[in-house]
Design a protein around this nucleic acid. Structure first.
Lengths: 347, 347
DNA sequence: TTGTAGGCGTTATCAG
DNA sequence: CTGATAACGCCTACAA
């Protein structure tokens, strides 16, 4: 099994009897040589089994061409099971130029491993809702990679796109209060990355590493007065179901639940079902994100809408402009709006 | 904004007064030099703002270090909305060595663009259920990248992992027939990438570009006699719902539906609900995949189980072994089993 | 323990 | 239109 060296640009050049530069031009600047010569070069290249310019070598020479490193705060399973993230990622990938792919860097404990960031062939990074003290971000800075942040953290020198989470949460809270609900529970997602679930202490809430969670909580609390809160360990439907069971056991029993995501709300819907409560007659439910599943639900979910497609698109655009040498501008904050459907009703 | 050149290994070497090799060793082979010298090197490197060895240059020199290119047949949104795929990818990423990330290459029309594969910094590729004539695969071959195929296509020279789809489908069909059902409908996913939906012609079935679809269909048909079939344009729940509505309008109305995925089955469940049919009393439903949603459903779904986590893990292991120079062995076929839950009942 | 020299496969610049 | 020549930034024998 002789590990025979693969042909290179030079092999082809020698065979054709031209210089390497000419062969390179044959691939990258067809207008720089006669069609016939080019043809001859391509032919012999094929005959030699030359696979075309090596992407890595090309990148070294051009100092570019890597992909976009997308850093996630969670494992892929968690990432994929979060519809909101899927939509953002899809839109991001869609907007990226064809020649740049996404280098997905899953997180282990609050972010990708620093080492993997150090080795990544990327010339721009996108951080998706990462904890402020994420080691991977230190590495990004050390490498001097242009950075686009989605949601978190707020970092000088990086471009950023986020969402009016707090205002949106306040909208949700005001809505249910306006409907006459006095006993309102909150279904929050993780405040820390320790997998703990249950009613969190005030301190735990205050010290949350997750900006989105903090903001949404702040929005709820700006309207509500010390509501009962259940913290879930993740954003899965099951988690929402579990938390809702607890919340609905409180006395007085909440007549409305504000949920930090649609998935959580869907879990709560299930819990209501378990307990024989009708939505919205016996229980009012508000989600967050407005993912497709929210409209799909029975009843369709009232929720706080954020434009996830826009979020991904803008992140990609920012990444591209950074690549083009633009300075990161002020952060772009997308609006949130309340979408009233059938899961909310007057008390 | 002077685009000042970033320091390199050489800059550091000169500053410290040693050779580049020594600096390189300071990073890659700490045991090759005294701790004190190493320390001095690292310090000045930091002072100079040297970010450590450039990943691209390193890869060029070592001829390795790229990531694993994962080629998908669909856009990411579609990919993510398919729970089965999510699980496989997660398991795949999880098994990969820490230093290799996944380069996600979404497909546009049946696969990634050939051009993007040509430029990818990858030293191994994983194809996930791609059409046989996928251009991206030609490029993979041209580049001589080691290839691991999941499900499709069957390609000489590549490692492969797939699933006993046909046998599994036959299992499902036998199960419902054994239960006494005579009128059985089939909810199939896309046979072609043209977005068409409806009852497909025999020719359309026979010429399907998708192996998984063909195999499952073959499994059903090996037991059933010319069942009514509805082809969905995708694997979304909505699609399943739409198709089920049509199937349930046929005369005689099917008393059982075999669905090519759990998502489709869940859509069918919804359709049954729409029509006031009880499952399993009035309608028997069988899914495929055994994703978490299947157990979650109400009623929990009888389905054909495949081990998606294994599938991803094995794909990753194959990729790694290919990277280590192993020859692709015979294809690994994972078993399918029938998981009986509450969505099936005797006629 | 350190340094030297050669190579990795391209691209870019600038003459001819 | 073509070809030297010099980067690009690093790795790795091998010699000292």
């Amino acid at each position: 099994m002789g590990r025979e060296r693969r042909p290179t640009l030079d092999t082809v050049a020698r065979e054709v009897g031209v210089s390497r530069a000419t062969v390179s031009n044959a691939y990258n600047r067809p207008d720089q040589l006669s069609a016939s010569l080019r043809e001859r070069i391509i032919m012999t290249a094929a005959a030699l089994g030359y696979a075309g310019p090596d992407p890595v070598a090309r990148s070294l020479a051009t100092r570019s061409g890597g992909s976009v490193a997308v850093m996630l705060g969670s494992r892929l399973s968690a990432a994929f099971s979060d519809p909101a993230l899927s939509i953002v990622l899809d839109s991001l990938a869609d907007t990226l130029d064809v020649e740049r792919s996404m280098l997905l860097m899953p997180g282990v404990e609050g972010g990708p491993r620093r080492e993997s960031v150090a080795r990544a062939h990327a010339d721009v990074a996108v951080a998706y809702s990462l904890p402020d003290d994420c080691a991977a971000l230190v590495e990004v800075e050390r490498r001097g990679l242009p950075l686009v942040v989605i949601d978190q953290p707020v970092l000088p020198g990086s471009a950023m796109v986020d969402v009016a989470d707090r205002a949106g949460a306040a909208l949700a809270a005001s809505h249910v209060v306006g409907l006459g609900h006095r006993d309102v529970g909150v279904l929050a997602f993780a405040l820390h990355a320790d997998g703990v679930s249950g009613p969190p202490s005030a301190e735990r809430v205050a010290t949350s590493r997750y900006r989105v969670t903090r903001e949404r909580m702040a929005g709820y609390v700006s309207v509500l007065d010390a509501p009962p809160v259940w913290e879930t360990p993740g954003c899965l439907r099951d988690h929402g179901r579990e938390g809702a069971h607890w919340l609905l056991r409180q006395v007085p029993r909440p007549t409305a639940l504000l949920c930090m995501s649609d998935e959580l709300a869907l879990g709560a819907l299930r819990a209501a079902h378990d307990l024989g409560l009708r939505v919205p007659e016996d229980l009012t439910l508000v989600g967050f994100d407005d993912t497709p599943a929210a409209q799909w639900a029975d009843p369709p979910l009232t929720t706080v809408r954020q434009d996830l497609v826009d979020k991904g698109r803008i992140a990609a655009e920012l990444a591209i402009s950074l690549l083009d040498g633009a300075r990161p501008g002020p952060s772009r904050t997308l609006p949130t709006t309340l979408v009233e459907r059938a899961s909310t009703a007057p008390r």
